[in-house]
Design a protein around this nucleic acid. Structure first.
Length: 404
DNA sequence: TCTGGGGTCCTAGGACCC
DNA sequence: TCTGGGGTCCTAGGACCC
């Protein structure tokens, strides 16, 4: 018989807001913004005005993550809005990951503020899992000044569902023998991977709770959810065999970036200029990870909030800015509907770790040469900023096509 | 002062091949 | 005379996560 697994899920409560609160206190601010109606929100003037995180008090006013700050203010007049600080969040996230790594090397960084820990077979070291969970929770509070929820389960799904139960600053379990009492009473949309669309379809099928889903007719589910049906039904029974992905980041499957523009652009040159900057950014991420991309995509969101995209497969994988920009510019020319563009982005996918070397020795040498040059350029840019050197030539040469 | 940004995975349809 | 069909690759779009 296979041994039962034991998984912890650690989830920072209101991460962006908590981390900002701790930082403000550290800098001498008296007020703890976790205790007032407050949110972390994007820059409204830059048209990024949505709620990124909310305090428990703000939540009581009915404020929801991802809604507009405008809407949030309507719900709460004296709402305090603080800007995000992504560098700070990255630092806090690294720090937390380092701290948790002392308990097990089998740790998955699921997102900036969530980790899975595989504590299977560690009963000699930690005979009481629940006590360990409380220790972790309390240590984090004492050491770092913010609270977390810890969920325990026999797999990732259950651990994650458990950490979501009651917040903040709590430890919960959802072991396999607790599924019927703790999971089944929940609304079906509370289940991981059941979003708005799926929930709406399920409602039409008169499936409202996780228990309803657990007993739903498989034939009916399959008709509406195809291959997802089995996954959904398994979830309702707390079944999940997925392994921890300890090197998730190193094996990224895609790298992307996009910008909401300060106003809607309708000028090819202006839009391509943004694409060039974005090409540089995503290319550098690839180079840092020693990855190469085989597929390049350009994504658009127009003033009507309609999204569309075009992608193409390259003959040779690359992480060179000029190659990526060239592909992006070509895709732009093919795809852009000459509408007003609110957001434009680049996505690189089909990533590989090692470049498949080209036919001749000569090509190899050449590639090595350009890799070296690129490395030096990256170092200079790291030191003096991205705008210090820029291959303006690549912009000029590709721009000619659309100028006229 | 309306609606972010970075990801993963799946599906459907067309092209192409045998 | 009445239109196979399975497999693979590629692209566009969408659902879902934090």
């Amino acid at each position: 018989m296979e041994k039962e697994r034991l998984i912890f899920h650690v989830d920072v409560n209101n991460a962006f807001l908590s981390w900002t609160a701790v930082e403000l206190l550290r800098k001498g601010k008296r007020l703890d913004i976790r205790k007032i109606p407050s949110i972390i929100g994007g820059d409204e003037a830059a048209r990024r005005g949505i709620v990124l995180a909310k305090s428990p008090v703000a939540k009581k006013f009915g404020i929801k993550t991802a809604e507009t700050i405008y809407a949030a203010r309507k719900k709460c007049k004296n709402l305090q809005v603080f800007p995000p600080d992504h560098d700070l969040y990255k630092k806090r996230s690294d720090e937390l990951f380092q701290y948790l790594s002392q308990y097990t090397p089998k740790i998955e960084r699921y997102s900036i503020d969530e980790c899975f820990l595989d504590m299977t077979g560690m009963s000699l070291l930690y005979p009481d899992p629940l006590a360990l969970a409380y220790k972790i929770k309390d240590e984090i509070k004492e050491k770092f000044g913010y609270t977390v929820n810890v969920g325990l389960g026999n797999n990732k799904l259950c651990a994650k569902m458990a950490s979501d139960f009651e917040k903040p600053d709590r430890v919960h379990t959802l072991f396999i023998d607790e599924i019927q009492t703790k999971l089944w009473p929940l609304k079906v949309e509370d289940l991981l991977m059941i979003g708005k669309q799926s929930a709406a379809t399920l409602r039409q099928l008169k499936i409202y709770t996780v228990e309803d889903l657990a007993h739903a007719d498989m034939y009916l589910l399959t008709k509406y959810f195809k291959s997802q049906a089995k996954f959904m039904k398994d979830s309702a029974w707390g079944i999940d065999d997925s392994p921890l992905e300890t090197d998730r980041h190193a094996l990224a499957k895609c790298v992307s970036t996009s910008r909401t523009l300060p106003y809607d652009y309708r000028d090819a040159r202006q839009l391509k200029k943004v694409l060039l900057q974005e090409s540089e950014e995503v290319a550098r991420v690839l180079r840092r990870q020693h990855q190469y991309a085989k597929t390049v995509a350009v994504t658009f969101k127009n003033s009507q909030f309609v999204s569309y995209s075009h992608q193409m497969k390259l003959y040779n994988e690359t992480n060179v800015t000029a190659d990526i920009y060239k592909a992006a510019a070509e895709l732009f020319d093919r795809a852009w509907k000459e509408d007003d563009i609110r957001n434009i982005g680049i996505r690189l996918s089909d990533l590989v770790l090692v470049k498949e070397q080209q036919i001749s020795l000569f090509d190899k040498e050449k590639d090595h040469g350009s890799d070296k040059i690129q490395e030096v350029l990256d170092q200079i840019q790291d030191k003096y900023g991205v705008s210090s050197i820029f291959s303006a030539s690549s912009l000029e040469s590709t721009n000619k096509n659309t100028e006229s």
